[in-house]
Design a binder for these strands. Structure first.
Lengths: 213, 213
DNA sequence: AGAAATTTTGGAGGCGTTGCAAAATTTCAG
DNA sequence: CTGAAATTTTGCAACGCCTCCAAAATTTCT
């Protein structure tokens, strides 16, 4: 509270730099834009950019903070009688059916995907994020099931659940990049989710079922 | 044929540079060794290094050329009456039971893993290789099953099969890095493979079964 | 042996990133 | 309101990866 003006200005500056950078990236691609250009466009020195962001890639993924926890949140908030995988499938179906921008179903998402697709550094950073998602899911499953420390099951289940999530996202990204309409992709991905569910083993679909009441 | 001496010398130089580099990496870590040092240690100019290897990471992964095709090869050579996943599980069990260095079950593999673990650039490159494995598996499954172009199943199945493979390798790497003995890890991973098989859906375990005779 | 093809090398430079100390700005105390 | 203290911003130099280019050195071919 005491620190008002300074903190506010910092958040403002940070946000502005990230916005300017993202704009340039979407316009000309990740590698074609230099950090020096970003700094200049944001009326700031190169060092200030690095004061806020550890690396160039972080300028692009600054928005995706909440995405890393989403899967774990879905699992923790599953319904009574519902398994972890069941909750994830339900939530995914909900987002996809609603043609939600949260899962990339929006016009303009192809631009976003293309920037990532063409920049190895960004793809690499995505994998890092995916790894964090996996760790979060494993931790959530461990807590929710009270599994023993040596139990390999939470990790295996996390692998399966992350695979569901990842497959859906990769497909959406691919189809949107191919120029398809969001509504069209939504229908197709709903069918894909059915295919995925048919593939999963019963043990996966029945893991970490929340007790009734 | 006509080009004998030159070709031989090139392969020799390439191999020597890679060997020197790998030695330095194992000794001091990936990031602590500079390309200039490698060049000097190999009695060669920095530009010559880049004539042979597109990037620093390629100096480390030069040996792992055959690993990228292994899964697809296992699938293509599955027995009559055996599914793709079945063949992979069988081959994995064989390698693990034999405590084979091909799957990292050997003393000194922990050094190798540690170098990768500590270098983001190397982990990132590993993910790229994993992506290639996935693509190869998808292609193999498409050819072996004659699936239609729009069929999403080969890609989904490839995801499941690569997950098996990846889980086994990550576990071996983790346990070896923890200082465990190869024989001990072998036993543990055999149990893990059983757990994995129990998790898989029947559709996965029965996909791409090779016709009898 | 000399011409042609190929490999190796040196040099210059761009880019991301870090470290450091000086300057500018903001906060706080009197 | 003023000056000291804390913090942020900045400029500068430097390192390391990597690229481009043209000049040597080497190998192959005639």
């Amino acid at each position: 509270m005491a620190e008002g003006l300074r903190e506010r200005k910092k958040r403002q500056t940070r946000q502005y730099i990230s916005d300017v950078a993202t704009g340039l990236f979407l316009e000309r691609g990740f590698e074609a834009v230099t950090v020096a250009e970003i700094a200049e466009a944001a009326n700031v020195s190169v060092n200030t950019v690095y004061n806020y962001f550890p690396a160039k890639e972080d300028l692009f993924f600054d928005r995706s903070a909440g995405v890393v926890d989403r899967l774990a949140r879905w699992i923790r908030s599953r319904d009574a009688g519902e398994s972890a995988a069941g909750a994830v499938l339900r939530e995914l179906r909900g987002e996809v059916q609603a043609v939600s921008p949260r899962v990339g179903l929006m016009t303009g998402y192809d631009r976003f995907m293309r920037v990532i697709h063409e920049a190895p550094a960004l793809r690499s950073r995505l994998w890092t994020l995916q790894q964090e998602v996996h760790d979060n899911v494993t931790a959530a499953l461990r807590e929710e099931t009270g599994a023993a420390d040596g139990d390999p099951l939470p990790d295996l289940m996390a692998g399966q659940i992350c695979w569901i999530h990842q497959t859906v996202f990769v497909t959406i990204g691919r189809e949107m990049m191919a120029g398809r309409e969001p509504a069209e992709v939504s229908r197709e991905v709903l069918a894909l989710i059915d295919d995925i569910e048919d593939l999963l083993g019963e043990r996966v679909l029945e893991y970490a079922v929340r007790a009734q009441d």
